[in-house]
Design a protein around this nucleic acid. Structure first.
Lengths: 208, 208
DNA sequence: GTCTATATGTGGATAGAC
DNA sequence: GTCTATCCACATATAGAC
């Protein structure tokens, strides 16, 4: 797994680079202050420019926020798919699912403020924007559903609870780990990823 | 378990009654529009009054919001404690914990919009307000920690994962159930409470 | 207790210089 | 591309009538 590095990454044009710095700065301010109290001047300050200058890169505050929210979704979903595709072909459906779970949390933690910014801001933005952001989320949900269904069929995951419920349980549990206090993410030598994978595995696997 | 009934409940004075109606209306608007887009005029409209009239009951928008957030916390915590106290004395620590888990989710679901309003709004309000709201949350966390620790000592709950992590896992998982689409809360004759209790139980219990 | 009317402040957005 | 200056809409909050 390659570490997420927003600063470098694939070489960006100068313009794309500032655009990305603005997005990351916006995420940081959103997490610290919340959507309502986030002023364009705050965001501009973190990037070292004036509020008005942001309009060269984005049409509006919400346009910028939409980029923040969409970026995290695209990254995490791509990350999970690639992690799954990179698995040896002899993995069972259950093993694939548990790798996907771990990869999803890895990705959430790797993108820093973008994760909590998404979690906290989604329900604050206009409904039309929420609607635009839903399709990719749904698509990822369907992808997870396939992994879950396959693991149920193979007998590795419990069949007494609905697939939709299992999916929400998994996603909801993982999404909120990004809000854990930092010291909690490493306990007794266990990482948050290891601990959550263990808990979810034991929760959803078929009784032996 | 008595059903939460905000309309009736212990007889309220006329003034306390409107105050409560305002709080509930505010919660509904907060969930629908998010904190930033919630205008006092929206809240007033749901209660059937004018925006200015709210200031007879509350000092400011944030004063009202603080009441919304605090109300849910007090109710759910009281509910869990009472449910636990009402248990027969022969229950094992593990059984007590699992009843507490179920009761917590019952309470979250019973108070309607107050739950998602709290979940979504908490990080949007001024930090000073967040600080004022934290102590009761911490207190409840410590209470849960006691239940968890006792169940670990009795050998019913796993000891390979930190108590703090177990607590956050439980609370985080349950808190987001209030965002599930309504039809998902009843599947195959299982209620959300039953399903979540099962999942959490299997996740955290000691391996046999 | 609730209404109407108004003062006030703030922050998103725009225009044009550099 | 970024800055400065300014416009303008809007929602909180206040004052006083009823």
């Amino acid at each position: 797994m390659t570490m997420f590095d927003l600063a470098s990454g694939p070489r960006l044009s100068k313009s794309e680079d500032t655009r990305r710095r603005i997005v990351l700065g916006a995420a940081a301010v959103l997490v610290e202050k919340g959507y309502a109290a986030t002023r364009l001047s705050d965001i501009a300050a973190t990037v070292g420019m004036q509020a008005g200058s942001l309009y060269y890169h984005f049409d509006s505050k919400d346009d910028l926020v939409e980029e923040v929210l969409g970026f995290g979704v695209r990254y995490t979903h791509d990350y999970v798919r690639k992690a799954v595709e990179a698995l040896p072909s002899d993995r069972t459906p259950g093993e694939v699912l548990f790798e996907a779970v771990a990869a999803f949390l890895e990705a959430l933690l790797a993108i820093g403020d973008l994760s909590p910014a998404h979690l906290r801001t989604f329900h604050q933005v206009p409904l039309e924007m929420q609607e635009r952001l839903r399709p990719p989320r749904r698509e990822f949900g369907r992808y997870l559903d396939e992994l879950i269904s396959a693991a149920i069929t193979s007998g590795e995951v419990r069949s007494d609870i609905d697939t939709d419920v299992l999916r929400l349980f998994i996603i909801n549990s993982l999404e909120r780990v990004v809000d854990w206090p930092q010291p909690l993410r490493e306990r007794k030598g266990n990482s948050a990823v290891k601990m959550m994978r263990t808990l979810i595995l034991d929760a959803i696997r078929a009784p032996r």
